[in-house]
Computed example of a mutant assay.
Amino acid sequence: MFFEAVPFQTLQRIWDCFLLDGLPVLFQFSVALLKYHEKALLKRKDILAFLKDTKLLARLTFDIEKIVEIVKINRDTFPSWSWIQERQAHYMKILRKVYEEQEKARKEFERQEGLNQHNSKPSMKELTGSEHDLLIDWATEFSPGKLLVCRSDVKQGWISRVDVQLRTKENLGVRMDSRVMCITMAGENLMLVGTLSWYLYAYTINTREEVWCERLRDTPLCLEYDPVTQNIFIGLSDGTLAVIESVSTTHPNEVFYHAIGAAPVRSVVKVPDLEQLWCSCGNAVNILDSSLNIINGFEVSRSPNIHISYMVLNEDGVWIIIRGSPVLTLWDPALCLCILLYDTSTEQAAGWKRLNKDQSIHTPR
């Protein structure tokens, strides 16, 4: 505890107090560190900046005498160890319930997708076989008229480069020993690949070489790159949003995780005009601001078994695709309302002005 989090001389004093007074000291010093840096931390409104500054300021806490003084002054106001244990038991009960819901959502997701988990680290090696018997799992545009297309199954995946205008396909010459779940471009030359085995790969298009690999908390299902901040937002199957700041060819220093819901986060869309991030989680969409705080949301269905499979942003709004449904819905990001229903099976559309209250699928939360 506190190892590599504070300077060594500060660590020594904390451990001296810990050996003398026991476990409550660790909680007291944690609160004292936050109190010591309270003014600086309260200036941060962004969650990621708050977490980064908390770690940075803790490493610069050399005034251990001041920290000890804060602990002494507030010793009587600190809760008892029995109260802390009672609170821990209470929150563990809540976390177990959330975990059970996540496991149910995971099993349902794996059942729908026909997936088997593989936790071993996959490798990227030279392509030795043909991928023509595999289905196309993912495709993304990396330049006008040029696509990256992935064919894969549970145990393998191949990535090809397709030129739509020339009608040609070029294999990139690498094989992945796990199913590819998502692909996106981070700039002109860096491609990010998320796999079933919980890994996020980055490699360059020109050299076709892997530049770094990061193991995530769970399987990545979608990737959204912000060209302004160069941040990458990753939707995970455990219902959390992973964030990597300033993505480049160098290995990221840290991955931040932000809880969204119990169901898998299957799609993430950045709405730059409103500085919003739309995250689909089961049958709901959670809308986050630039600080990753949930500011709004809605449900596309009252049934928890209906899942949003994909979201796309264009000049008309955000298109939402529901798994197993022929109906596409178009949402106005500013009003957070469904403005169009389009049935692909009958090629019929209905605007939101012609829908009465009972017909509307919009359910504010």
Score class of each variant (00 low, 15 high):
I308N: 00
N171D: 14
E101R: 13
V162C: 13
P326N: 07
A5F: 12
Q28E: 13
E315I: 01
S248G: 14
I287H: 04
K104P: 02
S178N: 03
P304V: 06
E69D: 14
N283P: 15
F18H: 12
P252W: 07
I361A: 05
E141A: 14
W352A: 08
L223V: 07
K45L: 01
P326T: 09
A242E: 08
I294H: 03
M185A: 15
K146C: 01
Y201Q: 11
V162E: 10
R96M: 10
D289P: 01
L288S: 10
K169V: 14
G239P: 13
T204C: 03
L313S: 04
K43D: 03
Y310T: 04
L292I: 08
L166F: 14
A284C: 06
G235S: 12
S152D: 10
V269K: 00
Q117Y: 05
V31Q: 03
L190S: 04
L241Q: 10
R87I: 04
M185D: 03
I64Q: 12
K107T: 08
V285E: 03
L221G: 08
N253E: 15
D153Y: 01
M181L: 07
I205Y: 00
S80H: 05
I322W: 01
G261M: 11
Y99D: 09
V162G: 01
K55D: 13
H118C: 01
V174T: 09
L277M: 09
